[in-house]
């Protein structure tokens, strides 16, 4: 934890400096709560507030989406950015939602946080920053929480670790059964757990999931890729989304949401983190990225740079079409 406290000091002093010299209007980071195991998001407007910023294994909320609240602003915003946040920022830039010169990025290489989804993370060092707060050297490149990460694991072994996972239990309201196991796992661990089922088993598994869905749209709200000014679910006259509260319509929403972020998902797992019903919906988006990689035969990681081409916005003359 020594590393965390040294790095926390670096975050605080960088934030104070940016606020003092007027580079940014405020800095987005994390603050403590009265629960030791929880942090919350802090918008530090003053140097004093900057001293309240924290950095520990419980900084599990991703910050990128908050930039959208200021997408029309004429001032600059500072943000602490780990791998996931930096990829969100690139994503928002690709989608023309924010202006690069109005974001000041404090790059914070991440050791892996105390969350199950972080255990499948492969890209923890920031890919874009204005200032890198500390070196990414010495950080484990993949896998779960720093102290939980076994060393010398190659990709094949990591895939094995993920493959044997049990089907995630569909959570009960207001419980958090998903964050119980933070050991190292495969990048698409949630999808892989479902893939082995038969069609009927899959159907009833998702039936159970979507029967519990309350359509609060928190998953959409937290998603840094859901950057639309207006969401299709809120547009009654478009008619894409049935308003019935039924498993069938919930399922249409779930699948559509996944498809809307299909080729742009940065794999941060916020959708699942914020689900108040604890539903394992990360599998849907993981599955899509896995499919894209299978179709193209190439690695597909979104947010690595701001100029990238989206899978669905391009084509190859010899794309696969084996079912057509």
């Amino acid at each position: 934890m020594n590393n965390f406290s040294q790095q926390q000091q670096k975050i605080r002093s960088a934030a104070s400096r940016l606020l003092a010299d007027g580079t940014v209007r405020f800095v987005i980071g994390w603050a403590p709560t009265r629960f030791a195991e929880r942090t919350t998001v802090l918008f530090a407007h003053t140097e004093a507030e900057a001293q309240a910023l924290v950095w520990n294994a419980h900084c599990t909320a991703a910050l990128g989406k908050y930039l959208l609240d200021h997408r029309l602003a004429d001032y600059a915003v500072g943000i602490v950015a780990r791998g996931c946040e930096s990829r969100m920022i690139n994503r928002l830039l690709t989608d023309h939602q924010i202006w690069r010169e109005r974001v000041y990025i404090l790059g914070a290489p991440c050791p892996g946080m105390d969350a199950e989804r972080c255990a499948g993370c492969r890209e923890r060092a920031p890919v874009v920053w204005d200032e890198l707060l500390w070196d990414a050297d010495g950080m484990p490149e993949t896998g779960g929480r720093q102290d939980a990460a076994p060393t010398n694991l190659d990709e094949a072994t990591i895939a094995d670790v993920g493959a044997g996972l049990a089907l995630p239990a569909v959570g009960a309201a207001c419980s958090r059964p998903l964050d119980t196991d933070t050991s190292l796992r495969s990048r698409f661990f949630r999808a892989e757990a479902v893939e082995g089922l038969s069609a009927a088993e899959k159907f009833s598994y998702w039936d159970e999931v979507y029967a519990k869905c309350i359509r609060c749209y928190a998953c959409r709200q937290a998603c840094p890729v859901c950057s639309c000014r207006a969401c299709y679910v809120d547009m009654d006259r478009q008619g894409f989304q049935g308003k019935q509260h039924s498993a069938a319509d919930n399922r249409v929403f779930g699948v559509t949401r996944a498809f809307h972020v299909a080729d742009r998902c940065v794999e941060c797992g916020e959708c699942e983190r914020v689900c108040p019903m604890g539903l394992p919906i990360l599998g849907q988006t993981q599955k899509l990225i896995k499919e894209i990689e299978a179709l193209t035969g190439e690695a597909y990681v979104q947010g690595m740079d701001a100029e990238e081409e989206n899978f669905l916005g391009a084509f190859d003359l010899d794309d696969k079409d084996d079912f057509l």
């Binding site: 159907f203 998702w206 399922r251 299909a262 899509l288 179709l295 899978f311 084509f315 079912f323």
Partner: peptide, 29 residues
Amino acid sequence: NFFTRRRFMLMRGLLEFNGIDPRRFHARW
């Protein structure tokens, strides 16, 4: 149709993942 191809190759995988029998969804040129 090049975009159609990518969209539905992807959608087929997602439908299958959601337990919709792939034999219920087809595409053809």
